[in-house]
Amino acid sequence: MGIKVKVTDLHKAYGDNEVLKGINLEVQENEVVVMIGPSGSGKSTFLRTLNKLENPTTGSIAIDGIDLTAKETNLNKVRENIGMVFQHFNLFPHLTVLENVTLAPVELGKISKEEAKTLGMQLLAQVGLADKADAKPTQLSGGQKQRVAIARALAMKPSIMLFDEPTSALDPEMVGEVLKVMRDLAQEGMTMIVVTHEMGFAKQVADRVVFFADGYIREEGTPEEVFGNPQDPRAKDFLNKVLNV
């Protein structure tokens, strides 16, 4: 057990518009942290700073003790260790499903083409899509696309996975298949940071729930604490709205 992620006093502004106003967060190894909050609260921006898709204005981010904000840090190396899954999947449409999964490990010289193929098929089997290996992304449903995207991220054998609203763009009947894959991952001990509106998933799978509003973390704790007895008025209001529909 150790600290995987340590964020200290993180700020992010676009011009005059400050979207992150001093975030502090630690994530332990094997921990599943779910981030909830209203739209525009800064949770997605925060997630994207964790692999430097967004550059923070000030503050520090350390992943496995490596300072991401330091100039000498090789970001490409750090990113190999951080898988990311996007709301809109962002599969590579010009490649087959299998090629989507094997592109990065082969291009980065991690494994041979043959080994990558074996690994790719394994991962596709793990997300239940071995039969789609030679299909193009356009031939898949949304749920299938997102499962391929998860397999693609896993192919780099990351020790942390970031999920940015992975089910928000899906038809309701496809949400379950994606959440199942994520649940399996969590059970295998993957360190996960998830931005989502799936409160059921948060309750069942999260070790810790973090509530964002207005660029601050307003509340954090176990699912029982946050859902059962929220302290912050904004959190109370938000949960009241999303849980009692």
């Binding site: 990113r79 962002n90 590579f92 592109l103 990065a104 980065l108 995207a149 693609r152 780099m156």
Partner: peptide, 24 residues
């Protein structure tokens, strides 16, 4: 998002450009 996805996998800017963005 194509560039972001490629970069998030650890590909360098030029590798992502050549393998992902350019072909499209």
């Amino acid at each position: 998002g194509q560039m972001e996805a490629a970069r998030s996998l650890g590909l360098s800017y030029w590798k992502a450009m050549r393998k992902v963005v350019l072909p499209q």
